[in-house]
Amino acid sequence: MQTVTPSNLFKDQARATAVGRGRGDKKYRIFSYLVLTLIVITITIPFMWMISTSFKPESEILRRNLFPVKPTMDNYSEVITETELPIWYKNSLIVAMICTISVAFFDSLAGFVFAKYQFPGKRFIFIAFLASLMVPTEMLLIPWFIMSSNPPIPVGGTWVDTYWGIAFPGVITAAGIFLMRQFMQGVPDELLDAGRIDGVSEFGLYWRIAVPLSLPAIGALSIFTFLGNWNAFIWPLIATSRSEMFTLPVGIQQFSSEADTPWNLIMTGASLSVLPLMIVVIIFQRYIIEGIALTGLKG
């Protein structure tokens, strides 16, 4: 398969699709617009409902109106001042940042090594890394839990309820290493050799030559890593038990108790957790869409 770089993947999309097809084209296109618009509306309904509910006063929650009769910001002020949501926000941000920075660095470094170095055991190590993708994380949850409660480096007792404890399974990813290796293979050897002659250290070659050339890929990988960790649920659920260490999804899940399902607060929390990411995605959509296409193509 030809090498695909993010920049050329979608550039001429419109042109490529507009292959002249004479007959019935217009009809088909109108049909496409109709169907797509219908699906797009369906897709946006949950978002509209979520946002609309977050502005409803409590008295309107259990009513059948779609939009708030008396819109209010009370839910937002209550969520921010009376729940721990701001703390969960901070926790999610910290955990996602730890993983993103770590993945961006270690995955690209390892990808660089696998792409540009020859050394004994390379094939074995690479396959061992990739083989780990075959093991579903669910199988590792219980061992991780046992490890976290009795860790090899017992900093302050256990890893349970620490940022490291939530983040550690995701600080290096096999898929990311694979993706970065594919990319770094495109870095010209001549550039690296020229760097060596100029006395650039091996780390310098990575940091000053390979990384700048792979920034689009690292960017896409980082965005994905961030999204994945921001939305992660099952491990943070297991790795945290104190509400001040919850991440957003865990916190939102715990909003509902036996006695109470505060829909207005849940919808407000959901809006607050979803909207910023949606804005980021709209800004960086090109990277993200290309990143998905790439990981997809490379499988």
Binding site: T158, E244, E258
Partner: peptide, 17 residues
């Protein structure tokens, strides 16, 4: 600090250590 739903899990997490 532990919510009801996680209480037993947290005890289990503490025991091996």
């Amino acid at each position: 600090d532990i919510p009801y739903a996680d209480f037993r899990t947290e005890i289990a997490a503490s025991a091996p250590a």
